[in-house]
């Protein structure tokens, strides 16, 4: 066994790339669930973002247009879920699953002409000073801009929920929509905005897959990433910081175990292969074991002002 072939600088850089799609999708879904809505359509929104982002980036030659279009497309798609569940009071679980199916089908339809094409390269950000540092410069400060956007997004979501009035309202809507309604807050509007945000984030995550992590369009390429994101939100007990830990743990252990295999580590492969799931769950359950960690009180329940 010769682990010397693993380069820690490249390893950490790969881990960040691997964790970002799930992180983006999970942080969006966390906001949705904080508002009391359970949207199981993350997989469908991600893959829609992946295909739209790829198509627009290839057509325009600009990957950033791709990311914008992906966020917009998935957000619009998520609004169909919003209209069905918030106005027509359809069952959230069934509608979310339906959204996943629609997304998968729609994406393979849109994606047909783009199979085998190459994504325009996305440039790495050069931060004067930081990027030139030895080791850490290449490890942490020489990535594409979307990695920093995803990290800033986590901080923004955390601050929004914890310190702003709007964040408090969103949480109130999620904890008890009847009380929030009695206080005069527009439950449905708040939830629609949260769903829209969650859709946009899932779209960004999908586009990150097709434009950076793989980078190409292949039918069905999310291959369950959306479900992992959903699971991370639950195991992170609806906390932004823990979502970040969960996504990086999952992405990190995934890449680490591949590197251990490549380096010929003397550990049973079946165990290595299962390790991302095991370690992420164990760690998140452990850090969530103390303190408040309940689901938002109104999660998954339909709201109508007449009740």
């Amino acid at each position: 066994m010769d682990l010397g072939s693993i380069n820690p600088v490249l390893l950490v850089a790969s881990i960040m790339v691997s964790a970002t799609p799930i992180l983006l999708a999970a942080i969006g879904e966390m906001v949705v669930e904080k508002a009391g809505v359970l949207n199981l359509g993350v997989e469908g929104m991600m893959i829609t973002g992946a295909v739209v982002g790829f198509a627009v980036a290839v057509t325009s030659g600009n990957p950033y247009f791709g990311f914008l279009a992906a966020a917009a497309a998935s957000a619009v798609l998520s609004l169909s879920f919003g209209v069905l569940t918030q106005f027509l009071l359809s069952n959230q679980v069934a509608t979310g699953l339906g959204l996943t199916l629609v997304g998968l089908g729609l994406s393979s339809l849109i994606g047909k002409p783009y199979e085998g094409m190459k994504a325009p390269p996305i440039s790495k950000v050069h931060i004067p000073g930081l990027s030139d540092m030895p080791v850490f410069g290449k490890m942490l400060f020489s990535h594409d801009v979307m990695i920093y956007v995803s990290l800033l997004l986590v901080v923004a979501v955390w601050a929004f929920l914890k310190y702003t009035r709007a964040g408090l309202i969103l949480r109130a809507v999620g904890e008890s929509h009847d009380s929030a309604h009695a206080l005069g807050y527009k439950v449905v509007t708040v939830r629609l905005m949260a769903i829209f945000f969650g859709g946009a984030c899932a779209g960004l995550g999908g586009a990150y897959l097709s434009l950076v992590r793989v980078p190409q369009w292949t039918e069905g390429m999310t291959a369950g990433a959306g479900w992992i994101a959903l699971a991370i939100v639950v195991f992170a007990s609806w906390r932004a910081g823990r979502v970040l830990i969960g996504a990086y743990l999952f992405g990190g252990v995934t890449v680490l175990q591949l590197n251990l295999q490549a380096a010929g580590a003397n550990v049973p492969v079946a165990l290595l292969s299962a390790s991302p799931y095991l370690i992420t769950i164990i760690v998140l359950v452990f850090i969530s074991a103390r303190g408040a960690h309940g689901a938002p009180g109104s999660l998954g329940r339909s709201f109508h002002a007449s009740h």
Partner: peptide, 24 residues
């Protein structure tokens, strides 16, 4: 260097595996 993915199809994982092999 052999990496087992325990799946036939998962583009993201396949890309990660290729990258891990190349980096090694």
């Amino acid at each position: 260097s052999i990496i087992w993915l325990y799946t036939w199809f998962d583009p993201a994982k396949e890309a990660d595996a290729a990258r891990a092999l190349i980096e090694n």
